[in-house]
Nucleic acid binder design. Structure first.
Length: 467
RNA sequence: GGGUCGGUAGCUCAGCGGCAGAGCAGGUGUUUGUUAAGCACCCGCGCGUGGGUUCGAGUCCCACCCGUCCCUCCA
């Protein structure tokens, strides 16, 4: 007798076969007439399978009390066509085993809707809910789609380090990694030297968790061709918003011989590819998000898939904002970075679709971005989407050694710290480009969820690292 | 880091100077091929913590703790 997952049984029965089912009870509707309906879920599908248990099942009377929401069971029974509305098939139990009970008075998950805020406090149980089960499946589908997208295009998956000693990635505040005895350092005598001797630390110098694999990624792109990295990324910024995590997952492709236009084209195809793959692979889950989370999500995604992204230079965006007639809290002026409210206006009000902004003022962008001939801008690009905001940031990289060194100095950085990065320009330099996509941000876009802490299993944010 | 709103029953919330409430969940009974089942009854709240004002404080004041959301930073 085959042990089947719920998804398989719902997909193709087949009616008349004996099956072995294992999972967790979502709800039970009980009759004193001698039968009960049990909704069984095993995570393979958003949907439950209805199990009919009647008094012919050995131990029926005892089981009824045990089959509470959250209990785990094994059911052996026959797949039958269901005579009632709501499901086409159901399983008639012949034999039942309870693996584990769940005290109905204590089990936190009830047969009702819970707030996301409450569920965040019981993050170890929330994957048992419809919403978080669906998010887990969609997140998985996105990851698979990311690999499919790049693998089918001949990109190599490269693992860049999590621990880095290049204190120079420049993308944000870093978490320090150390084996130094902090308690002992803190207890030093007053008047003792306060500087830290990092030569005594584990790596012999100051080390941190990576804020980006880009620089290391470039070294492989400039050797083996198109590559991508995909892994955890850490930012020690004190950001308390629905769009920021201290630990998140980022995909960073890097392509030799790409210019900024090639880069934008790839980013756009990439986002489209992911959306298409998820719509195809997770129809039930996406339908659920559309019904329960955001009634416009399917229409929004279809719209994104079927229309080109709008491309605007930074300068054009400034002009649009200046002539918008809107009152913004922050000033709009060429040379100043765009604020959330400006990006929101463009994506949510003015155009209502993804917008790619490019050619930003050099003064507000990183040292490694390629300088344009106008002397004022660099070949940077951001992909902005409604609600989730910036989901991609990228650029063409500066491949000219002298220009790059000048930019490093202009940014008050020490070229010596970047000796290996500069070597890429010393030996066989090539034009190249790349970008970073925030996994959790595209999940916001896909699911309609509004808080990034709800699309990662165990969110890490300032003051929060429970579980 | 700045701002904001909020902490009352297991959950979601109402009450905003005068005897602590509702819905849902849970329990019991009953009804029903049920569908977030129906009906009846029952259980359940030292109102975030500590001070203060008052005859009287969930309710007003102050401090603190915890959380939400927005902004800055970015993906």
């Amino acid at each position: 007798m085959p042990r089947l997952k719920v998804a398989a049984i719902l997909k193709d029965g087949p009616i008349g076969t004996e099956v072995d089912l294992r999972g967790w009870v979502r709800t039970k509707r009980e009759s004193k007439q001698g039968f009960a309906f049990v909704e069984l879920n095993d995570g393979s599908s958003l949907k439950n399978v209805q199990v009919v248990v009647d008094k012919s099942v050995p131990g029926y009377d005892d089981f009824l009390k045990l089959l509470t929401t959250g209990s785990s069971i094994r059911v052996v029974g026959e797949v039958k066509a269901s005579p009632a509305k709501g499901q086409s098939i159901e399983v008639h139990a012949r034999e039942l085993t309870v693996y584990g009970t769940a005290d109905a008075e204590k089990y936190p998950l009830q047969k009702k809707g819970h707030s996301f805020e409450f569920l965040r406090d019981i993050a170890h149980l929330r994957p048992r809910t419809n919403t978080f089960g669906a998010i887990a499946r969609v997140r998985n589908a996105v990851c698979a789609a990311i690999h499919d997208f790049f693998q089918s295009r001949g990109f190599l998956y490269v693992h860049t380090p999590i621990i880095t000693t290049s204190d120079c990635e420049g993308a944000g505040q870093m978490f320090q990694v150390t084996t130094l005895d902090l308690a002992r350092l803190a207890a030093r005598q007053p008047g003792a030297p306060t500087d830290i001797d990092y030569a005594q630390d584990f790596f012999g110098k100051r080390a941190s968790l990576t804020v980006s694999g880009q620089l290391e990624g470039e070294t492989f792109a400039c050797a083996v061709g198109d590559i991508y990295t995909f892994g955890p990324t850490f930012r020690a910024e004190n950001s308390n918003t629905t769009r920021h995590l201290s630990e998140f997952w980022m995909v960073e492709p890097e392509m030799p011989f790409y210019d900024l236009n090639d880069n934008m084209q790839l980013a756009e195809s990439f986002i489209r590819g992911i959306i298409r793959a998820v719509l195809e692979r997770c129809p039930d889950d996406m339908q659920f998000f559309n019904e329960r989370i955001d009634k416009t999500i399917l229409a929004t995604l279809e719209n994104i898939v079927s229309h080109d992204f709008l491309r605007l230079s930074y300068t054009e965006a400034i002009e649009i904002l200046e002539s918008s007639g809107q009152t913004f809290e922050f000033p709009v002026k060429w040379g100043l970075d765009l604020q959330s409210e400006h990006e929101r206006y463009l994506t949510e009000q003015k155009f209502q679709k993804p917008v790619i902004l490019y050619d930003y003022p050099r003064a507000i962008k990183s040292f490694y971005m390629r300088a344009n001939d106008d002397g004022k801008t660099v070949r940077a690009m951001d992909v902005l989407v409604p609600r989730a905001g910036e989901i991609i940031g990228g650029s063409q990289r500066e491949e000219r050694l002298d220009v790059l060194i000048a930019r490093v100095q202009e940014c008050h950085l020490n070229p010596d710290d970047y000796w290996w990065y500069l070597d890429l320009r010393r030996y066989g330099t090539v034009p190249h480009a790349g970008f970073g996509l925030g996994l959790e941000r595209i999940l916001l876009l896909l699911t309609g969820m509004t808080n990034i802490r709800d699309v990662i299993p165990y969110p890490r944010t300032p003051k929060h690292a429970e579980f």
